[in-house]
Design a protein around this nucleic acid. Structure first.
Length: 324
DNA sequence: ACGATTTGACCGCA
DNA sequence: TGCGGTCAAATCGT
């Protein structure tokens, strides 16, 4: 273990900065349901310009943070760049973020329809393979995949490989990924993930992540944590045709474990301590509680603390690298 | 023997 | 109708 180096501090600083900006924006958006900035009756509300500034700060902070993760990686074989899904425009989610549950309806019929497949979250990573390590294939992520197909793609020099979760049948996990070697640079693989893991792999696998003070992870709380991420999405006012505007989603979801619930759970006004990172609560801890004053769509109060003197587990970085 | 990979066939969508 | 994505039988590796 080593103390945080400068880049790691910068990374966390950017993440915290982005989080704070998001919180401000969320608070303002939550307080101001009116889409008309000029007609707002709330004197404390931010102007549209200020909101845009905050949004810019959030996006900028996360972009910097991601860049830092990419450039400070120690993984000798690969280098990963994450791009948002150009269709949805969403900031990529982690492969381990949980959407849906194995017990939900669409998972009970033994498979997903093509429509439902299309609805699954999708994001792309660009993975560079270190030439001196050979071109044995794209980087390993923390998940176990099984190849189920390969196709020659029109206009592409290299075939595309199709993988699905090894536990598709046993655990009804419908995460898939596609791997396509870049035409321009054969050392770059584009890895497109679709769907999120609902299998047991979403917990840190023993071979990759040490399950130290084993966080108490209950499915429902995982779902709540995912809800949290969803609810932390900065919402812009609806447009005139009633369609939700573009939003910003938090990219950091994977190393996000709850380890202690107090006063029940999120759903009934309780609170849960969380930490980012897998080494223990001291890495980056926070208290998440529901704000029940907002009616049917609960707003989560997030209060994160980071102790700059605390040691940080390098698996956190590896995990971010592998999954973002 | 069992699980993973390969590969041609099939299907849905634009 | 062509293309991308998936299926499933055949094959391979341990």
């Amino acid at each position: 273990m080593e103390l945080l180096n400068c880049e790691q501090k910068n990374l966390l600083s950017e993440l915290i900065h982005g989080l704070n900006a998001a919180k401000q924006l969320q608070a303002q958006l939550g307080a101001d349901p009116s889409p008309r900035p000029s007609s707002s009756s709330y004197s404390s509300c931010l102007t549209t310009e200020m909101k845009e500034t905050l949004l810019h700060q959030i996006v900028s902070s996360y972009e910097k943070a991601i860049l830092m993760v990419n450039t400070t990686q120690h993984n000798p074989t690969t280098e990963t760049v994450v791009t948002a899904d150009p269709v949805s425009g969403k900031v990529p989610e982690s492969p381990t973020s949980i959407i849906g549950s194995p017990g939900s309806e669409e998972f009970l019929d033994g498979g997903l329809s093509s429509k439902k497949r299309k609805m699954l979250p999708k994001w792309t990573e660009q993975v560079r393979i270190c030439p001196e390590r050979g071109l044995e294939g794209p980087h390993d992520d923390v998940f176990s995949w099984r190849k189920y197909g390969q196709k020659d793609i029109l206009g592409a020099k290299y075939p595309r490989s199709y993988y699905r979760c090894t536990f598709r049948n046993t655990q009804h996990c419908y995460a898939t990924k596609q791997v396509q070697r870049s035409d321009g640079d054969p050392t770059i693989f584009e890895v497109t993930y679709r769907g999120t893991h609902t299998c047991a792999q979403r917990n840190p696998p023993p071979e990759k992540r040490e399950s130290k003070p084993n966080p108490t992870v209950v499915n429902s709380q995982y779902d709540l944590l995912d809800n949290l991420r969803t609810n932390l999405t900065a919402r812009r006012p609806r447009t005139t045709n009633g369609i939700e505007g573009d939003g910003f989603s938090f990219p950091v979801t994977s190393p996000f474990y709850s380890y202690e619930s107090i006063n029940g759970d999120f759903g009934n006004g309780g609170a849960t301590y969380c930490h980012v990172g897998s080494s223990g609560p001291s890495d980056f801890t926070g208290l998440i509680s529901t704000n029940t004053s907002t009616g049917s769509s609960p707003i989560f109060d997030v209060d994160f603390h980071f102790d700059p003197t605390a040691e940080i587990d390098t698996t956190f970085h590896t995990f971010l690298h592998d999954t973002m």
